[in-house]
Measured scan of single mutants.
Amino acid sequence: TEHYTFHTEEQAQRAAKKFKKQGLPVTIHEKNGKFTLQVN
């Protein structure tokens, strides 16, 4: 499991699309105004 932190939801969504294209499951969590992208 890898985690990436982004300052905006837009950045997180863009990164999520790249991972999803590779067939990886992705979840985004919002915490304290930051967005954490979790790749399993």
Rank of each mutant, 00 (worst) to 15 (best):
Q11N: 05
K31F: 12
E10G: 06
F35S: 02
G33H: 03
E2S: 11
A16R: 03
G33W: 00
A16M: 07
E30M: 09
E9F: 15
T5L: 10
N32I: 00
K17C: 14
K18H: 13
K31L: 13
Q38P: 01
E2Q: 13
E9Y: 15
T8E: 04
T5F: 12
V26T: 06
Q11Y: 04
A15G: 03
L24G: 02
K18G: 06
R14P: 00
V39R: 01
Q22V: 08
A16G: 03
F19K: 02
Q11P: 01
K18I: 11
K21T: 09
Q22G: 05
T27W: 07
L24K: 06
A16D: 01
E2L: 14
T5D: 06
K21F: 07
Q11D: 13
H29F: 14
A15V: 08
A12F: 01
E9P: 05
N32W: 03
Y4S: 04
T1G: 11
Q13W: 07
E9R: 14
Q22F: 10
A12V: 05
K31P: 00
E10M: 08
Y4R: 05
A15Y: 07
A12S: 01
K20D: 06
K31S: 11
G33D: 04
P25D: 15
Y4P: 05
V26A: 05
E2H: 15
F35P: 02
K31V: 14
H29D: 06
F35Y: 11
K31D: 11
N32A: 05
L24S: 04
A12E: 00
H3C: 15
K18L: 09
N32D: 13
K31I: 14
N32K: 04
R14M: 09
E30D: 05
A16T: 02
Q13M: 12
V39A: 03
T5E: 10
E10I: 08
R14T: 08
L24F: 12
F35T: 03
N40L: 13
I28M: 05
H7F: 12
T36M: 12
Y4Q: 05
P25W: 14
L37R: 01
T27Y: 08
K18T: 06
A16I: 05
E10R: 09
K18Y: 15
N32H: 05
F19H: 03
K31M: 11
T5K: 05
T1M: 11
Q38V: 15
H3M: 12
G33L: 01
T5V: 13
K17M: 10
K17G: 07
A15S: 03
T36P: 02
A12M: 04
H3D: 08
V39D: 02
E10F: 07
R14V: 08
A16Q: 04
F35N: 02
G23K: 03
G23Y: 03
T27G: 03
A16E: 04
K17I: 12
V39G: 02
V26G: 02
Q13H: 08
Q13V: 10
F19N: 01
Q11S: 08
E30L: 07
N32Q: 04
L37S: 02
Q22D: 07
T1R: 10
L24M: 09
K18Q: 09
I28L: 06
L37P: 02
T8L: 04
T27V: 09
V26D: 00
H29K: 09
L37I: 13
Y4L: 10
T27P: 00
